[in-house]
Simulated assay, not measured.
Amino acid sequence: MNERELRTFVAIVEAGRMDRAATTLGYSQPAVSYQIKCLEQELGTRLFLRHPDGTELTKDGAMVLPAARAVLTLLDGIKEVATRDIRDPVGLRVSG
């Protein structure tokens, strides 16, 4: 499982439809479907029920959603810290 798959999963939940999530993410609709297929295979469960008018979370999908959001929040925090210019008192960049 990777960040892109998790972001795609959350985007579909928020948009209610795979095509709308694809537009929001700037991906093609087949790419979104593929990301979800990969995530479902890795987790060994279906996350969505697909309907002509959109998607619906399965029970397992609803259980995964809070953890996916938490992981993405942590990843965003790591990226923010990593890109912040942290300096020590003598003006040298602090590393590790």
Score class of each variant (00 low, 15 high):
22 A>Y: 06
73 T>L: 09
63 M>R: 14
81 V>R: 05
57 L>C: 01
60 D>S: 10
54 G>L: 02
34 Y>D: 11
59 K>P: 03
27 Y>L: 10
19 D>M: 11
95 S>L: 15
39 L>W: 06
35 Q>C: 14
96 G>F: 15
16 G>I: 08
40 E>R: 05
19 D>T: 10
66 P>C: 06
79 K>S: 14
71 V>I: 13
46 R>Y: 08
42 E>N: 06
90 V>R: 11
35 Q>F: 14
93 R>Y: 00
85 D>L: 15
5 E>Y: 04
9 F>G: 02
54 G>C: 04
8 T>C: 07
18 M>F: 11
64 V>I: 08
82 A>M: 12
32 V>Y: 01
47 L>I: 05
75 L>F: 12
47 L>C: 01
31 A>P: 09
23 T>R: 15
12 I>M: 09
76 D>G: 14
15 A>T: 00
36 I>C: 02
53 D>N: 04
45 T>P: 06
6 L>G: 01
36 I>W: 02
64 V>F: 05
4 R>C: 07
83 T>P: 08
9 F>L: 01
77 G>I: 10
43 L>A: 05
85 D>V: 15
17 R>H: 14
29 Q>A: 13
34 Y>V: 10
43 L>I: 01
91 G>L: 09
45 T>K: 10
72 L>Q: 07
83 T>I: 11
47 L>T: 01
67 A>N: 07
51 H>R: 10
51 H>N: 05
55 T>W: 02
32 V>A: 09
59 K>I: 12
27 Y>D: 06
11 A>N: 02
38 C>N: 13
65 L>Y: 01
80 E>F: 08
79 K>E: 15
56 E>R: 13
22 A>T: 04
42 E>C: 05
60 D>A: 12
31 A>M: 11
11 A>K: 04
81 V>D: 05
62 A>F: 00
84 R>K: 15
5 E>N: 00
10 V>F: 01
6 L>N: 00
23 T>G: 15
18 M>C: 12
58 T>C: 07
19 D>V: 08
58 T>D: 09
41 Q>W: 02
8 T>L: 05
7 R>I: 01
46 R>G: 04
4 R>V: 00
53 D>M: 08
82 A>Q: 13
37 K>N: 09
90 V>Y: 14
55 T>M: 10
89 P>W: 07
79 K>V: 13
63 M>N: 10
44 G>H: 03
74 L>A: 13
92 L>P: 12
2 N>Y: 04
72 L>R: 06
8 T>Q: 00
42 E>G: 07
40 E>S: 04
62 A>Y: 02
47 L>N: 02
43 L>K: 03
88 D>P: 02
67 A>L: 09
29 Q>R: 14
66 P>G: 01
95 S>R: 15
45 T>L: 12
8 T>A: 02
1 M>I: 07
61 G>H: 02
4 R>F: 00
81 V>W: 07
76 D>M: 12
92 L>N: 15
46 R>H: 08
35 Q>V: 11
68 A>P: 05
10 V>D: 03
51 H>Q: 09
73 T>D: 12
74 L>T: 14
